[in-house]
Amino acid sequence: MPNARDLQPLEVPPGTRALDVLPALRRALDGAGPALLPVAADAPEEAQRLATALSGPLNPGEDAQDDPTALVIATSGSTGAPKGVLLPASSLRASAEATHRRLGGAGHWLLAMPAHHVAGVQVLVRALLAGTRPHAVDTSNGFRPDAFAEAARPLLAADGPHYTALVPTQLSRLIADGGAGLTALREFDAVLLGGAATPPALLADARERGVRATTTYGMSETAGGCVYDGVPLDVARVDVEGDLGPIRLAGPMLARGYRNRPDAEVFAGGWFRTGDLGRFDDGKLEVLGRADDVIITGGEKVAPLPVERVLTEQPGVREACVLGVDDAEWGQAVVAAIVPDPAAEPDVDALRAAVRARLGAAAAPKRITLLDELPLRGPGKPDRRALAAQLTC
């Protein structure tokens, strides 16, 4: 391009005030004005850190006159170092339009998660492209089922399909409350679940209660979810290297690359190498977690996600996170943090036995700790580093 365009921070307020960014977001999608770096308005120190690391004139290769970079989404990935994912307008549109085709048409969207993350901002992008007015949940006192119900009420009164997107923790809270929030949730034509893996037991419970839940798999580098219920969107291609290998994704929803990293090897040949392990099961993609989360214990490799799935299927378990901690005897020991059902705590020995029976002795947690809640990062992923520090204190 003749002159380098600027990447400027866009402060995104929490809750209902997130809708204030819609005009700026529309200009970015139209290629008018600067590219935008969404940052959380209620976390000024983190916002400043990201702005210092990522804002400024875009470099050659980070923009294109015929397809301008609209957003740069900051993500720490699994390393903690800030990376800026360069998303051109075409990628955001391709993702949003493919989502509408999968769900049954453009509709009305309720924002229930932070809009400085890709899952939240895509809710707003979809609404803009649909020509509908989004609504947002008041999160000034955290995510509350009654606030969800209140925000959903006017949106559900509008004609046309109604959609929202949640992280599994939010779904769990709505189901546990069982009140007006769950009643409202049942009225949505689709509820997208992302940000973290959805426990199978939670998904089954939601569907049994009449929630039209759809699991999604994707990341900032794919402009959000691009695999729904194990099946790629019509614009996405999925490849697994070997029988159980890293997942690769391709399609027009892919990011342009990373800010200030023109030679990032994960973007090569039109594919994005995710670093997640997966396999195809009956034609559907099954995601088994991050390759760098695999635990090597006593010479055996244990993927945490299958262990978490077994644990969350057991009575008394609401949430689970499994990780490896340093151990003098085993190299790494498999440990689990469990958020129990307040009404009936699980039997720890029974949990170990269930994992051992399904996945083998190596996968059975050496230690199980009960917590009131899991530490989270981003839109709703368990913070494994914070949890590891907590469990090794």
Rank of each mutant, 00 (worst) to 15 (best):
S220Y: 07
R237E: 15
Y217D: 00
P232D: 08
D234L: 10
G218D: 06
V235G: 12
S220E: 05
G257F: 09
A236V: 13
V238M: 10
G251Q: 00
G225Q: 05
V227M: 00
G251Y: 04
D243M: 14
R248N: 10
T215P: 09
T216A: 13
A223Y: 00
R259E: 08
G257W: 08
P246V: 13
G230K: 00
R212H: 14
G224F: 07
L244D: 12
L249T: 08
A250E: 11
E221C: 11
L233N: 00
D234N: 14
T222N: 10
P246S: 14
G242I: 12
Y228F: 15
G224K: 05
T214R: 14
V240N: 10
T215C: 13
Y228Q: 11
E241M: 13
L254A: 07
T216D: 00
I247H: 04
Y217K: 09
R237S: 15
G245E: 06
V227R: 01
Y217C: 01
V227W: 02
V235P: 00
P252W: 01
G224M: 03
T214H: 14
G210E: 04
L233G: 03
P232I: 09
P252D: 13
A255R: 10
G230E: 02
G251I: 02
T222L: 04
G230Q: 02
G225R: 01
V227N: 06
T214D: 01
C226H: 09
A223N: 03
S220K: 04
Y258K: 01
A236S: 14
G224W: 04
V231G: 12
P246A: 05
R212G: 10
T215S: 15
E221H: 09
A236F: 04
D243R: 14
D239H: 14
D239A: 14
V211D: 01
A236Q: 06
T215Q: 14
T214A: 11
E241L: 15
G224R: 06
T216G: 14
G242M: 10
D229Y: 05
T215G: 12
G218K: 02
V231A: 14
V211R: 00
S220I: 00
L254I: 11
T215Y: 11
Y258T: 02
L244F: 13
A236P: 09
E241K: 13
V211N: 10
M253Y: 01
E221P: 11
L244P: 00
M219E: 09
P252I: 12
C226R: 08
G257M: 11
V211F: 00
P246M: 08
G210C: 03
D243K: 13
G210W: 02
D234I: 13
A250Y: 07
T215F: 06
G210A: 05
Y258M: 04
R256T: 03
G210I: 00
R256Q: 09
G224V: 06
P252Y: 07
